[in-house]
């Protein structure tokens, strides 16, 4: 993936343009994604390649369409009344919006962690971790091991190991967020979308989650929306900078290897944003 400006972004479609690791296969591709809510266009012409087993950070000011974009990648966007979309999302080369694709299959493979923790209140802590298996009908054995592994990865195991049967509603906001991360991991997604997963977390849990993301990226592709520049630098291989001018749809101003975006951006607005001068 090269550092391409928005108007040159068609070039990023060519895998051969990948600047850094030309060998990495592309797992997920957004091609000319534009999004509307009703008649209002909120996102325009987003082209991003997500190479397999890498971490991509999506940054940009609030309201520029990062959450909207990330929700187009696992077909959650279409659940909103009035939602519309143009373009293609290719998962392992196939358009996830083509009519013969089952969205539940896509969502099982492309998991998601939301900004606001949403544990299922009718289930226990353990029940929540395993809920994805039940809900998707996925078969995995050794449930005890899954619970321990995923909760450990999410940095919650030590706090809850003695009360796995307790109501998930008893957890604090930060603990609930780590629980839903564990829940997302339990179904072993190939891609994990994370929409500001750490915005409700304390610094220690945040570091733990970042460690987990690095660990996960050995096996899966992670796409993370974050407002925390240090976090983007710490966890991501690639970064895409979203921006929306007033009353204009958002678009990707600049994207490329994280080191380039942060140390040597081509667009003045990227430079200003990553240095905290607006947004």
């Amino acid at each position: 993936m090269s550092t391409a400006e928005f108007d040159q972004s068609v070039e990023t479609l060519e895998p051969s343009m990948s600047g850094r690791s030309p060998a990495l296969p592309i797992q997920l591709t957004a091609r000319d994604i534009s999004v509307w809510f009703g008649k209002r266009k909120v996102l325009e012409g987003v082209n991003i390649d997500f190479p397999k087993n890498t971490v991509t950070a999506l940054i940009g000011p609030s309201g520029c369409g990062k959450s909207t974009f990330i929700r187009t990648l696992n077909r959650l966007h279409e659940l909103i009344p009035g939602a519309a979309l143009a373009g293609e999302v290719l998962y392992e080369g196939k358009d996830i919006y083509s009519p013969d694709i089952d969205p539940t299959h896509i969502r099982l493979n492309i998991g998601m962690v939301f900004q606001k923790p949403n544990p299922f209140p009718s289930m226990s802590i353990r029940g929540n971790v395993l809920s994805g298996l039940k809900l998707s009908g996925m078969k995995r054995s050794n449930h005890d091991d899954i619970v321990e592994e995923t909760l450990t990865a999410a940095g919650l195991w030590n706090e809850v190991k003695d009360r796995l049967g307790a109501h998930a509603g008893e957890l604090s906001g930060g603990q609930a967020q780590r629980l839903v991360i564990a829940r997302a991991l339990a179904v072993q997604p190939h891609v994990l979308l994370m929409d500001e997963p750490c915005s409700a977390l304390d610094p220690a849990s945040t570091l733990k989650i970042e460690e987990t993301i690095r660990e996960l990226s050995k096996d899966i592709t992670v796409i993370i929306v974050t407002h925390n520049m240090q976090q983007a630098v710490r966890v991501s291989d690639y970064t895409a900078f979203f921006l929306a001018a007033e009353n204009e749809p958002g678009h990707v101003v600049e994207q490329g290897p994280t080191t380039d975006i942060f140390s040597n951006p081509r667009d003045q607005r990227t430079l200003d944003y990553v240095n905290g001068r607006f947004g």
């Binding site: 696992n74 959650l76 659940l79 539940t104 299959h105 969502r107 099982l108 493979n109 998991g111 998601m112 939301f114 949403n118 299922f120 809920s131 994805g132 809900l135 998707s136 996925m138 839903v180 829940r183 997302a184 179904v187």
Partner: peptide
């Protein structure tokens, strides 16, 4: 609901 659907439900 979104949370459940996101788990492939």
């Amino acid at each position: 609901r979104t949370g459940a659907l996101a788990l492939g439900s």
